[in-house]
Simulated assay, not measured.
Amino acid sequence: MFRFKQKLTQASFIILISSLLTACGFQLRGEYSVPEDITAISVTSFDQYSKITRLIKEQLRLNQIDLVSPSKDVPNIHITGESITDRTLSLYQNTRAAEKEVVYEVNYRVTVPNLGSKDFTATMTRSYLDNPLSALAKSAERKLIEDEMREFSAQQMMRQMARLKTEIEEYEEKQLLEDTNTPADAKS
């Protein structure tokens, strides 16, 4: 009987928490999406075969966006460059680097026809221990960190593109106001 009451209490608690989270509008991270107005997009890059370009195309496919060839009437993401820099955070007693910080940055421009273009930067920072006694493991760890940072940057780019929705809405409202304020004689 005690087990039954315990299970019932746990189930009630889970239902209560779920309903509270649902009522406050909580959504899991990753629910950012590209504006609904953008159903197809072209991707151009400084290097069409780079990892970041492939990851961005993958993220767009996950958001159900069709990838098309560049055209003047199709939105475009142009990846202008990426960079990886590092700096020493701490030193061992023998003045060798003990901990390093890696900064990954990707710059890109989103161009939407009739709206214009906007430049963005996605930046990721990670730190890791730099053990000089394990050089092979250190380089493998560094490569894994860089790949992870590229993946997170591609996701961050999708979140940044979600901000375009407000700009598109503002542009459409502006166009609507201009159309309604234009006299009938000026339209013809």
Rank of each mutant, 00 (worst) to 15 (best):
R87M: 08
R3I: 07
K118T: 10
T123F: 00
M161V: 03
K138W: 03
Y104N: 01
Y128L: 07
R3S: 11
L89G: 05
Q175L: 14
T88W: 04
E101A: 13
S69R: 11
Q160H: 09
A98N: 15
N94T: 13
N181S: 11
S153V: 00
F26V: 13
S50L: 03
E169D: 14
E101H: 04
R96D: 15
Y49D: 13
R126F: 04
N107K: 10
L62Y: 10
M149R: 03
Y108L: 05
R54F: 07
E148H: 10
Y171S: 10
T39Y: 04
R109V: 15
I56M: 14
L176F: 13
E31P: 00
T22I: 11
R3F: 14
A135R: 09
Q59C: 06
V103G: 01
K7C: 09
I77M: 08
K57G: 07
Q93H: 09
Q10Y: 06
Q27N: 14
I14E: 15
D86F: 02
V43K: 05
D37G: 06
F26Q: 12
L133G: 03
L20R: 05
T111V: 03
S19E: 09
S45V: 02
L20Q: 12
P75G: 03
R163D: 14
L129V: 09
I41E: 00
D119L: 13
Q93G: 10
R150D: 03
S42V: 02
Y32S: 13
L91A: 07
T39I: 05
F120P: 03
I77A: 07
N181K: 09
N63W: 00
T121W: 01
T123R: 04
M158Q: 02
Q6D: 14
P70C: 08
I168G: 06
D179K: 13
E82Y: 00
Q27W: 06
G81L: 10
E146L: 04
L177D: 12
N131R: 06
L177E: 15
A97H: 07
T80N: 12
Y108P: 01
Q10N: 15
Q175A: 14
G25F: 12
S134Y: 09
S153G: 09
E31A: 09
L21A: 08
K57C: 05
F26D: 09
Q27T: 15
I56Q: 07
T166A: 12
K143N: 10
A186P: 00
A122P: 02
V68T: 10
R159M: 09
L16W: 12
D179S: 13
T121S: 13
V74Q: 03
M149C: 03
T111L: 08
F46P: 00
A11I: 14
P113I: 06
E148Y: 09
M149A: 06
A184Q: 15
S71Y: 06
T88P: 04
E101W: 03
F46I: 01
Q156I: 01
R96Q: 15
L67G: 12
K100I: 12
S69G: 06
R29G: 05
E170R: 05
Y104D: 00
V34N: 03
S50E: 05
Q160C: 05
E169Y: 11
E172C: 05
